[in-house]
Nucleic acid binder design. Sequence first.
DNA 1: ACCTGAACACCGTTCAAGT
DNA 2: ACCTGAACACCGTTCAAGT
Lengths: 220, 220
Amino acid sequence: MATRTRRPERREDALSRTRIVAAAVELLDVTGEGGLTFRALAAHLRTGPGAIYWHVANKDELLTAGTDAVLAGAMATDVAGDTPQDAIRSLALGVFDAIDAHPWAGTQLTRTPSQPSVLRLFERIGQQLRALDVPAAAQFSSASALLNYILGVAGQNAALARSQEPGTDRAAVLEAASANLDADEFPFTRSVAGQLRDHDDREQFLAGIDLVLAGIAGLQ
Amino acid sequence: MATRTRRPERREDALSRTRIVAAAVELLDVTGEGGLTFRALAAHLRTGPGAIYWHVANKDELLTAGTDAVLAGAMATDVAGDTPQDAIRSLALGVFDAIDAHPWAGTQLTRTPSQPSVLRLFERIGQQLRALDVPAAAQFSSASALLNYILGVAGQNAALARSQEPGTDRAAVLEAASANLDADEFPFTRSVAGQLRDHDDREQFLAGIDLVLAGIAGLQ
DNA sequence: ACCTGAACACCGTTCAAGT
DNA sequence: ACCTGAACACCGTTCAAGT
């Protein structure tokens, strides 16, 4: 009879950091930011809350790891054949789409300083700016500007998702809200509200990226 | 004897929405985002937690009102004599400084959709873009881009403040962190980390605004 | 009308005890 | 080494009872 490995058989339902994080992401996606509690997560994993703490330090680590898992795809985007601008656009869109699918990750992205996914995004943006021959002295602030814009959108999308039932027509809600604004105090907002009807969040997001890229191009 | 007004004498320590919000701001400034609890606030106001609920619906309303109070100054900035670009710069700097002094407000700004201060900021930016003769079709996305950039910075500053003792040298901490990064995976971040030493957050923030403004100018 | 403070229904986290 | 689940120290919010 062949010798069996000494390592204990891995039961299907054995706990592990990976399984815990995956379950947390699932819970967050289904129940929203408020739905992730150690009790609910433990119930989902058919164990007690204490068991989770053997694999994960605390709730913040859970959220950080979940956000990282969700952004891994966007961060791995292959941009080898693209122009630097297109590479930045597709990185940014990858992040946008990931947040769109998992709005709670947008909150976490803007909440935790040096969230690993943010650092990796900054790095990837910076590499493209080098390829663009952005002057060395302007590389840092240019990468920061792009990053901050992306994080700002991520945060706003997360806030909007938090306040509305999934599947709500955001534009319609925003448009209705702006119709109630005082015309004297909010002339611009009201004048622009009509554009919400047939506006595409994703295109709008890209238009902002392009504005920053145009500014960067102007640096020579 | 002159008739006294029927309105009861306003005791110095009578509760009111204004006093509650002011106390909340004070508590947030001193103890940070985690320090605002209804019990602590009630103790500060020498009353019970229930009393606060007579004047304020819930914690979120308290945070929204506090953020609004803190940003009122920045929003009221007089920009009458400025060029549109300078007006946008000074509005943005006003927000930056307010968040710098009250980092918890940066979190709230990015957390609540249609936080009133955000709406007013969007409006004021938009009015300047009109003055700049930005094409009508581009006004909305241009104002959004500026707003999102500002909110992104606000969020990051709040996150950084949350993670550090007040008064910590942020640049030094970031620089130390980046020195620990793998050189092969983070060449850009490491190359740029040196600039952190003598970089000014405020200038860096403005550089980003200028990048977007340059992009907007390029729209014709 | 406004305030009081105990009570309710939760949290995140810890830890003795088990296997 | 890993899991269990009761217990601790909090929360936000409600509400009967007071003035």
